[in-house]
């Protein structure tokens, strides 16, 4: 035990003010937050925060903005539980929430430098990946990376998140964007119909210099990995961000544990060789 540490609680959040709120879909909303003292969250792409509302509770939310976006941070939140539905329905611009974090390892983007980047986003999985996508596409960082491919799939045409930004990615000459819907619900849709794995054969990436980064619903990982393996992707070049119940964020409460790993500390980002060693991971 270490004595003489000041009385500080790991569980005390710092207040952040909601400065933007925008509806994306029936279930998902976009939020921008700022700390009153103007400080940055100082996060890495791929990390998460614990968002807290006194009297309601706390929920882990992945950070959706890039650290290159200074002075504020953004979250894309699906309304599924007590905290998230309260955030959606009862809090508005000007209201405060509590923030703890950032937590987790984030993406090892230093290792990605010099590589082509293949982003594979399923549904809400685009939220954490947008943090790294925006980082990669930031004008101060773009030169660090080669080609950028973005694969993004949704259940149907009503479920697109960050629609305006996705349009922006499509219009960029230095990004190849591929979109798909599992089920087409818009007669004007001219894009691909099918699950996200159906996009992978369409992309002409160089397996020798591409890093694949995956985030989506739990069911997606196995199939995407299989498809990448079919294209001879190297396992060590495949990264994924895993969802778990990160209750405390500080490696204590045990809910996010996979075998010996506490996802809130050693994850949520893992490379495929590490995931292979963890039973129950994907």
């Amino acid at each position: 035990m270490v004595a003489n540490i000041q009385e500080k609680s790991l569980y005390l959040p710092k207040l952040a003010k909601m400065t933007k709120k925008e509806r994306f879909t029936d279930k998902e909303m976009f939020f921008e937050f700022r700390f009153d003292d103007g400080s940055n969250l100082n996060h890495r792409p791929g990390q998460f925060v614990e968002l807290s509302i006194y009297g309601i509770g706390e929920a882990p939310i992945s950070i959706s903005s890039s650290p290159t976006q200074q002075g504020y941070f953004e979250l894309c939140v699906r309304s599924v539980g007590r905290v998230t539905s309260y955030l959606h329905n009862n809090l508005n611009v000007g209201d405060y929430v509590g923030i703890r974090g950032p937590f987790g390892n984030g993406f090892p983007f230093e290792k990605f430098k010099g590589h082509d980047m293949l982003f594979i986003c399923g549904g809400l999985g685009v939220a954490p990946l947008r943090s790294l996508i925006n980082y990669t596409l930031d004008k101060t960082k773009r030169g660090d990376f080669g080609k950028v491919y973005i694969l993004y799939g949704c259940k149907n045409n009503q479920e697109w998140l960050y629609q305006k930004e996705v349009e922006g990615w499509k219009n960029r000459a230095d990004v190849e964007t591929y979109l798909t819907v599992d089920k087409c619900t818009d007669s004007n849709w001219k894009g691909n119909v099918g699950v996200i794995t159906t996009l992978i054969p369409k992309v002409n990436f160089d397996v020798n210099k591409t890093i694949a980064v995956i985030c989506g619903p739990p069911i997606m990982y196995k199939f995407v990995v299989l498809e990448l393996k079919n294209r001879n992707f190297k396992e060590e070049n495949i990264y994924m961000s895993l969802e778990r119940r990160m209750k405390c964020g500080v490696g204590k409460c045990g809910h996010c544990q996979i075998n010996s790993v506490y996802v809130c500390q050693s994850g949520p980002v893992f490379d495929l060789p590490t995931v292979r060693k963890l039973q129950e991971a994907i």
Binding site: R78, T84, R245
Partner: peptide
Amino acid sequence: FAKVAGGENFR
């Protein structure tokens, strides 16, 4: 114990 808000239960 290992269930997330979205409904997935990892154990």
